[in-house]
Structure formats: C-alpha cells, structure tokens
C-alpha cells in the first residue's frame, strides 16, 4: 500500500470515528440536560443566569409579577444537584450551601425546600404557586419549563 493510500485510509477511519462520536454525543445530550421547572402560574418563559442564581440562592424572593418564589432543591450531595449547580448555575454546590447558611443562621433568610426524588420535585412544583425547581427531564405539562440564558 502506498503511503498516500495509507494516509487516506487512516483519515477516513478517523473521520468516521469523529462523526460517530458526534452523533453519539448529540443523542446523549438530551438525557444529560437539566430542565428548570416552575409552577404553571409563573408567567416568565426564561430567566437570566444571574436571576436564577439569586432565586436558588434565596436572595430574590419574588417573581416579576410579585408572586413569592418557592425554591425546591435536591440534597447537597445528590448527583442531580451537583450537575444542576455546575451546568445550569455555573457554580459549585458548596457555594450555594454557604450562601444559604449565611442567610439562615443570621436570620436574614430561609432555606430552600429539599426533595428526594424527581417525582416528588415535579409533584411539589406542580402544586405550589410560585415554585421553581429542576429535573433531568420534565415529561409533563403539569409544570412550566424555564430556559436559563
């Protein structure tokens, strides 16, 4: 085999590998994504990332229409919470915890409400006016999906 043929063959193989990887990644992405969900009575469609940080940081307590925000989260060490902090808020779980603790133990604010499963999260967000939370995939119309920009 000539050198040029060998190189062409190698490149074709590599190209096939790269394309396979890209397709696999694209297929995998929807299952990795995390969706921020809210009660259907919430009127906003999307939130800037700094507003999302303030809401989940328990510092922004009302929606633009004045409705009280009710925050639902998974426990600190839950993999979904870790992924949510990193991928959606671009923070680390310990930073949110420190922010909550500074509010809680100075009397300046309250803690978010903890849930233990995605079913519980969806159920509570669906039935609590002003609620916001997050799940891996919200296959239901009972909650509103909010995009973070």
């Amino acid at each position: 085999m000539k050198v040029s043929q060998y190189i062409r063959c190698f490149l074709q193989q590599r190209l096939a590998q790269v394309m396979l990887f890209m397709v696999a990644t694209l297929l995998a992405l929807p299952s990795l994504a995390i969706e921020v969900v809210a009660h259907t009575g919430v009127t906003v469609q999307s939130l800037p990332i700094n507003s999302a940080r303030s809401m989940f940081g328990m510092r922004q307590l009302s929606w633009p229409d004045g409705q009280q925000v009710r925050v639902f989260v998974f426990p600190d060490r839950h993999p979904l919470h870790t992924d949510f902090c990193k991928e959606v808020l671009n923070m680390y779980p310990y930073q949110l915890r420190q922010s909550w603790d500074r509010l809680i133990y100075s009397g300046m604010g309250q803690a978010p409400i903890e849930v233990n499963s995605e079913e519980e999260m969806l159920m509570l967000v669906a039935r609590t006016p002003g609620a916001i939370g997050y799940v891996r995939k919200a296959n239901t119309n009972a909650v509103r999906i909010i995009s973070i920009r």
């Binding site: 307590l61 009302s62 004045g66 009280q68 925000v69 809680i104 133990y105 009397g107 300046m108 604010g109 309250q110």
Partner: peptide, 18 residues
C-alpha cells in the same frame, strides 16, 4: 448551641429570632 425561627410572611416581610 442555638436555635432560630424565621417567618417569611411574604417576599417583603421577614420576622426572625435566634
């Protein structure tokens, strides 16, 4: 040792004691 209670009456009112 400590204990605290907060009442977040609305987004605009908070009562706290520790």
């Amino acid at each position: 040792a400590g204990v605290n209670t907060t009442l977040q009456a609305s987004p605009n009112w908070l009562v706290a004691g520790q």
